[in-house]
Design a protein around this nucleic acid. Structure first.
Lengths: 253, 253
DNA sequence: TGAAATCCGTGCGATATGTCAACAAAAAGA
DNA sequence: TCTTTTTGTTGACATATCGCACGGATTTCA
């Protein structure tokens, strides 16, 4: 069965779009704000917002709307329904203890990676990463590892349709540069990043497969840039990451 | 302006209800499963699910539906739009380092607390807590502190309409027991829990106020139960918690 | 302060959606 | 295997919703 035009509920799609207009830089919005941000008619945006408020997903002071923590239930329903966090967390903690570095697991969503689990050792990044946090895929080790498992055209298309700012002087931004690096990653089976996300931060990642061999996530370690060249660090710690990936392979479905 | 019946979009409300039917124990559902769980007609549930799939919030293998990580955007839009995590995280990290215990900040949603930020020292709980995680309010130190700031009738009503299982032999489960404890917490200004959530886990919490004096969250520390009586620990560490709460009071709005 | 611009709430006609019932296909049970 | 039950899909009709346009309230700005 294929999804036909007739089976789509406009109201639901619009309401979800309305929720997504609430971002970090626009936590409080008026009806007109939302209408402008979502492209909906003001009357429609108003009905969406009032519905959200009525259902407890938003609050309204008569002028501005704010999302409530109830909205988190929608997202965490998904996270909780993924067995992944619970399964990988213990392995992540153990690995992090053993190698003394921060480790994370993320999945790919479009052109972004989404953190699923994390074992932090020290703060090496200025931004706090936690489950649910997102980073662009093009400049992260986990992103590149997962993009490398997609068909070339698919990966390229995802990268083309999203911005690739130069987050640091080292960031690869050109589509061909990134695709070439991804091709390299595909061959060698892991990805190493040297200060492309943030100055002072290096990371490396390997793919996580389920029992059937499908790549469903990525595992990485992040560390502060130091005197030891990242290539050497990679050679030293790669077996550790691969061992955990192999161990998890049997546990993930 | 008040929300009238006419301003509510049924489709949106139903679709959100559909998302919420996906929980940890039911990650994959057929159309009929969702219809039964949500009380919707099968035809309606079907259109909701097809819409979610079409918008990228769900996946469909022809038989079962699964939520995608895209759903996380809905929730994290809210978390990110709260200035709280970013503001409290540094203070939390510093506090955690200073006292050598895990600390957290959570907010109240109905009869549950929702973790907003966390600085973990060691694993003391069997379940992994992270931003977005939920625990019932009745048996947690942060929950009791926040319930204590509500009107008595409101707090009681929230507790009455949600289950209060005996998670350990120490858990207070009777509504009057819990309300009495909450009354005590209201007077003394902080809450101490001794192994009511999980055996071996103790915690204490203080309220977090914004600049106007409204309680908007709670701050706690969690530690493994040890030889030192929790009452003594509380006396020793209470000033630390209160100092952080006072410091944050000026930063939160 | 006064005028212009913006914003919010509300009818209205056209259209989309919800509900119900029916039916075929698949699954479960005997 | 055949029957019974459940499930997915579709059609029809009553109803809810969309987008537009309008008026009053509020805000902005000179």
């Amino acid at each position: 069965m294929t999804i036909t035009e007739r089976d789509i509920m406009g109201g639901l799609a619009k309401g979800l779009a309305v929720i997504e207009t609430f971002a970090a830089d626009r936590p409080r919005q008026s009806i007109s704000d939302v209408a402008a941000a979502s492209g909906l008619d003001r009357a429609t945006a108003r009905r969406c917002l009032l519905t959200l408020a009525h259902q407890g997903y938003a609050e309204w002071d008569g002028k501005f709307f704010t999302l409530t923590p109830r909205v988190l239930r929608l997202g965490t329903a998904c996270l909780a329904s993924m067995p992944m966090p619970a399964i990988v967390q213990p392995a992540l903690d153990a690995l992090s203890d053993r190698i003394g570095e921060s480790t994370s697991v993320s999945i790919l969503d479009g052109a972004e990676i989404v953190y699923v689990a994390r074992a932090a050792q020290r703060k090496v990044m200025s931004i706090a990463l936690m489950p649910g946090s997102r980073l662009p895929a093009y400049c992260t080790s986990m992103g590149r590892v997962m993009l490398a498992t997609l068909p070339e055209a698919e990966a390229r298309s995802r990268l083309e349709t999203s911005p690739r700012p130069a987050r640091t002087p080292h960031t690869l931004t050109g589509i061909d540069q990134v695709m070439a690096e991804i091709a390299r990653v595909r061959v060698q089976g892991y990805s190493v990043i040297d200060q492309e996300v943030e100055m002072g931060l290096c990371s490396m990642a390997v793919p996580l497969m389920n029992a059937r061999g499908q790549v469903i996530a990525a595992l990485n370690l992040g560390r502060a840039a130091g005197p030891e060249p990242m290539a050497e660090v990679a050679q030293r710690l790669l077996p550790e990451l691969q061992a955990v990936a192999a161990q998890l392979r049997g546990l993930l479905r």
